[in-house]
Computed example of a mutant assay.
Amino acid sequence: MTALSILLSRLSLWFSAFGLVSMTVIIGWQVIGRYLLASAPAWAEQAALFLMLWFILFAAAAGVREGFHIRLSLMQDSLSEPRRRFLAIVCHAVVGAFGLAMTYGGGQLVIETWQHMIPTLGLPRGLGYVPLAIAGLLIAFFALEHILAERSDRKVEPLWS
């Protein structure tokens, strides 16, 4: 499970980095088109927004595994080890439940909006919401890895350790 988790996290981060670079290039092209060529491409803004959904959600999923998401640990750190571990498991279970809800809700959103087209891109609007479902599943998977690690008294090692 750990090897698969590391692979999925690494792929999510690479995909997010590629999306961020792509969005930066598109926005740069839009600025050049608007201010230097006096003709901005109509598709640039929608393409950047489309990519933003993808790379932010995959980075957020990787953040659950890697532990670079926002969290408050003051109470958890002040507890005895058995209580700290129990609270950590509960917190990861809540995050996992959120991921499953995100998967379900994202899947419903994809289904409901698939027939609507993004005019300037010619792509189904539902395609922009696919990362909600995938990232939710990844979040649930990474939360499960953390739960299993806590139960066996070990830590999930981040990619950069």
Rank of each mutant, 00 (worst) to 15 (best):
G99P: 02
G99M: 06
G99D: 04
G99T: 07
L100R: 10
L100H: 02
L100C: 15
L100A: 06
L100V: 11
L100T: 04
A101H: 13
A101G: 15
A101R: 07
A101P: 07
M102P: 04
M102R: 08
T103Y: 11
Y104G: 02
Y104V: 05
Y104C: 01
G105T: 08
G105P: 02
G105D: 04
G106P: 05
G106R: 06
G106Q: 07
G107F: 00
G107R: 06
Q108Y: 04
Q108I: 11
L109M: 05
L109H: 07
L109V: 02
L109I: 02
V110D: 07
V110P: 15
V110K: 11
V110R: 12
I111M: 04
I111R: 05
I111N: 02
I111E: 10
E112K: 14
E112Y: 14
E112C: 07
E112G: 15
E112W: 15
E112V: 15
E112S: 15
T113E: 09
T113A: 09
W114C: 00
W114V: 03
W114D: 09
W114G: 03
Q115S: 14
Q115R: 05
Q115C: 14
H116N: 11
H116W: 10
H116E: 13
H116T: 15
H116R: 03
I118Y: 03
I118F: 02
I118G: 00
I118R: 00
I118E: 02
P119W: 01
T120N: 07
T120V: 12
T120D: 06
T120W: 09
L121I: 00
L121M: 01
L121H: 00
L121K: 00
G122W: 00
G122N: 02
G122C: 11
G122E: 01
L123G: 01
L123Q: 02
L123M: 07
P124W: 11
P124D: 06
P124E: 06
R125Q: 10
R125C: 08
R125D: 08
R125M: 10
G126N: 04
G126Y: 09
G126W: 08
L127W: 05
L127F: 03
L127N: 01
L127D: 02
G128C: 09
G128R: 10
Y129A: 03
Y129D: 09
V130D: 12
V130Y: 14
V130L: 12
P131Y: 06
P131I: 06
P131G: 15
P131E: 14
P131M: 11
L132D: 07
L132V: 10
A133P: 11
A133D: 11
A133C: 15
A133F: 12
A133S: 15
I134F: 12
I134K: 09
I134C: 13
I134H: 05
